[in-house]
């Protein structure tokens, strides 16, 4: 599904290398988790994959179902099936949440040569998806993320994911700012989307999210590289011993 090979990335503004040769392969139907200390490059990886400005790829490649995503505009990546759940979802005053979602869904469908979803069908779709995430009609009507609590914003991200049905979902510290109940709700939303045809990359600091979203593979990232990969037990090792032991071991 998602293939990352020897990815090197620098900041455009300053001559600072953040990713120093990331290799990663996420298969369809699998959940991969990336853990790592602050500053290891986890979020940069998610931004580069989604096409945010400010980063320069100096070497390496990233493909989604063999399409070169690094050559695509952000909207093309989305239409190709890539979705990033933001660590800090953006507030957009004046744009209704429903309008936003419908515009996004139909833009993606148009880009893929599919028919647009009618207003009536969309309403049915969104009501069904919103219900599962306990998102009420008021949240759907309000401007995108404006006045939403931290938990509501993250639930809104998962709602977008559920509506857009991407092939490859990247979750950037989706657990940050969530209380236990909200984390459970968000995780249930993600788990409901687990599917043989869909890949997940879950970026997190903490093991606790992985209690809810059970990963198939866990990677440890440090200083711009994946330094160790393993099964779910690797996350528990981090939880119990911190990163120091692992980093010392691979150094």
């Amino acid at each position: 599904m998602l293939e990352i090979k020897n990815l090197h990335v620098s900041l455009e503004e300053e001559d600072k290398q953040i990713l120093k040769g990331v290799d990663l392969s996420v298969e369809a139907g699998k959940v991969h988790a990336i853990m790592g200390p602050n500053g290891s490059g986890k979020s940069t990886l998610s931004y580069v994959l989604s096409g945010r400005d400010g980063y320069e790829v100096t070497n390496g490649a990233a493909t989604l179902e063999s399409g070169d995503i690094l050559e695509m505009e952000p909207e093309e990546r989305a239409a190709a099936g890539l979705f990033l759940a933001f660590q800090y979802p953006v507030e957009i005053p004046g744009v209704g949440n429903m309008t936003f979602l419908r515009t996004a869904l139909n833009a993606q469908r148009t880009a893929r040569g599919e028919d647009e979803v009618s207003a009536a069908d969309f309403l049915k779709l969104i009501r069904e998806k919103a219900k599962a995430l306990k998102i009420d009609a008021d949240m759907l009507k309000r401007p995108v993320n404006v006045g939403f609590s931290g938990g509501e914003k993250k639930r809104n991200e998962i709602l977008q994911m559920a509506v857009l049905e991407p092939k490859m979902c990247i979750l950037d510290e989706t657990d940050s700012g969530l209380d236990v109940d909200a984390m459970k709700l968000v995780s249930e939303g993600v788990n409901a989307l687990r599917d043989a045809g869909r890949g997940f990359l879950v970026i997190t600091h903490y093991q606790r999210l992985l209690d809810h979203i059970k990963p198939d593979v866990v990677h440890i990232m440090a200083d711009g590289r994946i330094v160790k990969s393993g099964g779910p037990e690797l996350a528990l090792e981090v939880e119990n011993n911190g990163y120091a032991d692992i980093l010392a071991e691979v150094a």
Binding site: D53, P74, E75, I92, V95, F100, A104, A107
Partner: peptide, 27 residues
């Protein structure tokens, strides 16, 4: 135009000119 909002919209598949129009109307 708020670049962060523009990127957010694009990352959801809204082409840049449409995203910009949406933000202008919102303004």
């Amino acid at each position: 135009i708020d670049e962060t909002a523009l990127f957010y919209l694009r990352s959801r598949g809204v082409p840049e000119p449409d995203a910009q129009a949406l933000l202008v109307l919102a303004f």
